[in-house]
């Protein structure tokens, strides 16, 4: 399915509400819940949520949601404001063109790659702009495996979410 029909068939106020609630919940899961249960906040759950919403609502809505979600991450991070927004909006725009129903190039593996690339870009750009040494330790393992796990967990809900925003 293409991104445009998905966006066009969405009930706008409901879609906005789903995006706001989805991003807020994902933000709390990543920054507070995961560390509280002994997991790492480096798991890119917010970006995985952006991919889910972009798949359901299309590229334009995905870019807007990714921008807002990234900005929220920027505000809660010690990095540079705008870096998360940049990687989030590019992630949302790209994810809106995915076809997760197919297990091939434009499908689920690309969703994994996009989430990991966006979270990795957030980390690398912030290290570079903040002139902080970039280290490759456990955090990256959380980022990669957590990205795959989050997408695997969230993408199956897209059918239900489509019905909600329709």
């Amino acid at each position: 399915m293409s991104a445009l029909p998905a966006a066009a068939s969405a009930h706008a106020p409901r879609a906005v509400a789903v995006c706001v609630v989805g991003v807020a919940v994902a933000f709390l899961v990543q920054t507070a819940l995961l560390p509280a249960v002994g997991l790492s906040a480096a798991v890119p759950f917010v970006y995985a949520t952006v991919v889910l919403l972009a798949v359901v609502l299309g590229s334009s809505a995905g870019a807007l949601t990714g921008f807002a979600a990234g900005l929220l991450l920027d505000l809660s991070s010690v990095g540079t404001l705008g870096v998360g927004a940049l990687s989030g909006c590019l992630l949302g725009a790209a994810a809106g063109r995915l076809h997760p129903d197919r297990w091939w190039f434009s499908g689920v593996p690309t969703a994994f790659a996009l989430v990991i690339a966006a979270a990795g870009a957030f980390t690398v750009l912030n290290a570079w702009l903040g002139q902080v040494p970039l280290v490759f330790a456990q955090g990256w393992l959380w980022l990669i495996l957590g990205g795959v796990a989050s997408v695997t967990l969230l993408l199956p809900t897209r059918t239900w979410l489509r019905a909600v925003v329709r």
């Binding site: 920054t31 790492s40 991070s77 980390t123 912030n126 280290v135 330790a137 980022l143």
Partner: peptide, 9 residues
């Protein structure tokens, strides 16, 4: 109450 999300920060 919360942790930073960037890689190994």
């Amino acid at each position: 109450v919360a942790a930073d999300i960037a890689g190994d920060r």
